[in-house]
Nucleic acid binder design. Sequence first.
RNA 1: UCCUCCUUAGCUCAGUUGGUUAGAGCAUCUGACUGUUAAUCAGAGGGUCUCCCGUUCAAGUCGGGAAGGGGGAGCCA
Length: 480
Amino acid sequence: MFNKRIKIKELLTADKVNFDATVMGWVRTFRNNQFIALNDGSTNNNLQIVTGLGVFDEKILKRLTTGACIKVTGEIIASLGKGQKVELKAATIEILGDSDAEKFPLQPKKHSLEFLREIAHLRFRTNTFSAIFRVRHSLAFAVHKFFNDKGFVYLHTPIITASDAEGAGEMFRVTTLPLDGSALKNEDGSINYKDDFFGRSTNLTVSGQLEGELAAMAFSDIYTFGPTFRAENSNTTRHLAEFWMIEPEVAFNDLEDNMNLAEEFIRYIIKYAMEQNKEDLEFLAQRLTEEENQKPLVERSEMSLLDKLNFVVNNDFERLTYTEAIEILRESNHNKKKKFNYLIDGWGVDLQSEHERYLVEKHFKKPVILTNYPKDIKSFYMRLNDDGKTVAAMDILAPGIGEIVGGSQREERLDKLTQRMSEMHIPEEELNWYLDTRRFGACPHAGFGLGFERLVQFVTGMGNIRDVIPFPRYPKSAEF
RNA sequence: UCCUCCUUAGCUCAGUUGGUUAGAGCAUCUGACUGUUAAUCAGAGGGUCUCCCGUUCAAGUCGGGAAGGGGGAGCCA
């Protein structure tokens, strides 16, 4: 019965006193040789444990260092001090795991996020990161709850794929062939994969969409939620080499249905986290406010984190076409005064980050859904509109993060799809299995991909995506 | 990958026009105090100034290069 303990969250919220309890957790601070702040990860709030003077052996008290793991039994009483309602009057203290105070890197003080990133294996034990990862958990749980409640099938698409025609980015190769140059070669010098594990060239997936579409042609409504890999040499605050993506794919949906689903989905999971993780989000909001106060006035955001989340939950996203967006940007004073690094003058070019930020943060001041992009700047599978020059694509842009969702109505017409593929030099034989969905019982359908970490960034207010995934992978970094 | 800034104690930082023995706060250790809330007070220990090369009588400080990190851009989610 070692594990018969009460979680600290339960003790602090129950408000009950005068009963015996066993708690286990990690020492945050030991103040005044008398007060232990104990945390077990169930909440950001610590339980105050009072040792009393002269009750315990000096040898035990010396081992109550920051980071040590302990088991304490005693009576829960109404706190004699201010700052907490209840506290535990210790009867027994058992050290489960010592923590050498001279070597343990976390101190009862503020640490920089950069430093904590170097000790990612220990940063869970800080207030900020335990709050972030509890919120991340709730958001992940809400993803499944949202789709399950709507009757979607959770589809596990493969991590290892043979397709190299998805066009979503550079891929990591998967192989068991020797790296020393002794691998079998073709006559033209290229690698012969005949002896490789799968007998062909394989990669880590960059998207589960194409496989998701196959299943949507049977279940109607499916979603994927899994790891995704991009070998791009991206060094930014919003890119990872390994990230988690949510990709619903829905038969019989058109572009508007797709936007409605994405909007409802985002609102739902944010609202869920706000209900489940109120204290964590209040803590993160406070952290962000303090951080913002270090910045010059003009750079500070007008709304607090909680106001921003409430605003998103309670207001419709702004929807407009690419063409309308170009018009707004072209007519903006910002453009006329030549404040953009890339001035808007014509139709057809892709929007730069600065343009997206202008639309979202300056012009509309809310999340924006941009639709119907020029076909030449979008993927082959997006449905061609009747104008012959735009496709039924949609991107959702969030304040401070940028693109959080990319989606489209898919091209279900076989002739149009194969024509696009040949224009973009995508070999049909690579995607025969995909084209079969257009050959046998094709139907209008749509879907999108949502970058989970970007959503976690938005909800927690964290500026760097490397701080919202437990063990971030990015160029030159695969520690832990 | 490009632009830009940074790298000094365990952490966060200061360090003047190049000049004796490189400083502070926090943390750690020792002691005092004892209802504290990142406790307080006193004292102590703690440094290959990221690395390599160069300029100079003399380099933490100037120049070149490398590595690592931050911010921005591109690619995207």
